[in-house]
Design a protein around this nucleic acid. Structure first.
Lengths: 350, 350
DNA sequence: AGCTTCCATGAAAACGTTTACGTTTGCGCC
DNA sequence: GGCGCAAACGTAAACGTTTTCATGGAAGCT
């Protein structure tokens, strides 16, 4: 049975109709008698006919595929994002071409270029994209949605996480729990998320604890850098009452530094992170953090892109922002007052 | 500049050569003067010419894309697998069409069907595939590699994780640390990994502690089920000396049950898991577990598939197994003695 | 009945590429 | 200079589909 696959012509011949009619039946374009429809369908089924996508794409100019260009993402973030995108794409009959683990601008550019002609639209998440990047690498007429990006373009919609609001909410919470001296462990300077979280910290301090000193130590999102930051904070002559890390991994590292030094969390110092990675629940004490609904991000991005694909597209490109929730666990010392029950997916596989 | 994209004909006209020559230049097929090559390349660059993939696929019969059909995978497992596949694919100039989050046999079948004609080969990881499934849903001539599957087919190579050997190594380690009464928290009965780990447990017990009682309690891979299993084990009149959970999430749940009951790990009971998820390192005490190199799994699977794509393919389909290493942390109580690299299983393949 | 209208159908063009095959060109050699 | 041969190049077919347009006939209307 390794013979050549049946073509539309085979079906037509066998059903004693023209290829046009076969095409019409199978695409649900109207204009064909129920009787012939039946015959065509029967023959198609019998021959196991499946339309050739290349030929179809060639003539229609559509691939029914969207591309996702992603950086070297970690664990849950990656899987949740893909899940959201994939589900939304499937619901629309779209396929998903993934190119991940890009590091560096050339890498990302190559990925975007390679997708040309294979996809009807693109989802791009990369710290390297800016207006110039897009002009250089994206075909002029290819719709794209940017994720988590600072660019403001009239051509491309952008979908961001509201890092700033999330950071503000968490800092506010810490301050209202009586810890007005909040220190901040910053993330990589070039990282957009990190910048926004930093801004949120400063805004919240200015608003809710204007008399408290600003206290920012460097970090790079790694656990190791969080550990170093933790030690650095302990060495300060006036220790902060709370520490807000720009992400959970640094918070975890910081937590270890505190444990090591015999500093009790949250009694001596409160602690909070950002992202709500799975580990946050499992460190002791469980880490308060800011939750980002990543699957939603993917889903909304894809829906946005799908709207762009529609020729009757009228909505102008804009920047949309997706809020986050703070989830209060034990490290932030505030009584359990605000504890959001975080309903998380259960791991289903090994 | 939203005009139509340049075609090969435009390039040919502009360069004053035939389309054949343009094709030859751009594909690196020989038989064209350096001089004309230069001209063609210049014109192509000037016009931003990019070959249309649909047309190319139509005539060559190849898409340079491989499809990955995956179940509803969690966090690291998913992201690592995709990372391995993606990197290997990129190295070969192949694209990656992903369809994930499939639950149920119909869902998986639809995913496989939908890829028909879009990919040159497929990677399939699904607990629902068997020989019949493949016959029904895969085009006869489409190469495919099965991941983590019990099927033995002459047509499709299979790539498995050596769950059995990993389980044996861990149980052996526990026994040699002086804990011969090892209990096992089983995974879902229908899950292939879980079955293999169960078999490994029994084999190791038979071999290394033939006098100790077999002690298996049910679980379903969830943290919750691990917690319940932990309580169940504590209620036994003769408590086990060690507990081996079929995955890390259950081990974590079990750990909480022990903590809650004031049972010290590892002093009172040793504990080990399987998977080496990120959390394993962060619970207290850090969890001993069996590490699966998932990215390698993806990479090897893709390499295998790529070999199949080669027309000069001669290697017969076979079942290949990827070893795992045990990683000894604190919960298994054996003093650090046994964490010697010599004990760790090395990968059997590149 | 004669006219129009509409619907089902088929023939054929078009999509943009690769490639088999045929033609020209350049060049060395007798 | 004629010949042969290989290299460079061009022509055109082919891939499998969608879609426009033409055609035939049936049905509706006056």
């Amino acid at each position: 049975m390794t013979t050549k696959n049946a073509t539309i012509r085979d079906v037509a011949r066998e059903a004693k109709v023209s290829v046009a009619s076969v095409s019409r039946v199978l695409n649900g374009t109207g204009g064909v008698t129920p009787a012939t429809q039946k015959i065509v369908r029967e023959v198609a089924a019998r021959l196991h006919y499946v339309p050739d996508n290349a030929a179809r794409s060639l003539i229609t100019g559509r691939t029914n595929t969207i591309g996702a260009v992603l950086p070297d993402l970690y664990g849950e973030f990656f899987s949740e994002l893909i899940r959201g995108i994939d589900l939304a794409a499937r619901a629309r009959g779209l396929h998903l071409l993934v190119s991940s683990s890009h590091d560096g601008v050339d890498d990302a550019a190559a990925a975007v270029r390679a997708m040309r002609g294979r996809v009807d639209g693109m989802l791009i998440l990369s710290e390297y994209v800016d207006a110039g990047f897009l002009d250089d690498n994206l075909p002029a007429n290819l719709p794209a949605v940017l994720l988590d990006s600072p660019v403001k373009s009239a051509r491309y919609p952008v979908l961001n996480i509201d890092n700033r609001a999330g950071a503000i909410a968490m800092v506010q919470h810490l301050i209202e729990a009586g810890r007005s001296h909040v220190a901040f462990i910053a993330g990589p300077k070039t990282n957009f998320d990190a910048q926004q979280r930093d801004k949120g910290y400063r805004a919240a301090m200015a608003k809710y604890a204007p008399d408290a000193p600003l206290n920012v130590v460097a970090g790079d999102f790694s656990e190791e850098s969080g550990y170093r930051a933790g030690r650095e904070l302990l060495a300060q002559k006036k220790r902060p009452q709370a520490v807000f890390a720009a992400n959970d991994m640094m918070a975890v590292g910081c937590l270890y530094a505190f444990k090591e030094a015999g500093v009790d969390v949250p009694r001596d110092i409160a602690l909070a992170g950002f992202d709500d990675i799975l580990i946050a629940r499992y460190v002791t004490p469980p880490l308060s953090t800011v939750q980002v609904r990543i699957a939603d991000l993917g889903r909304i991005a894809l829906d946005r892109l799908a709207a762009l694909l529609d020729p009757a597209d009228t909505t102008p490109a804009s920047v949309q922002t997706l809020g986050c929730d703070i989830v209060v666990r034990e490290t932030c010392g505030g009584s359990a007052k605000a504890s959001t029950p975080s309903k998380r997916r259960r791991p289903q596989n090994t």
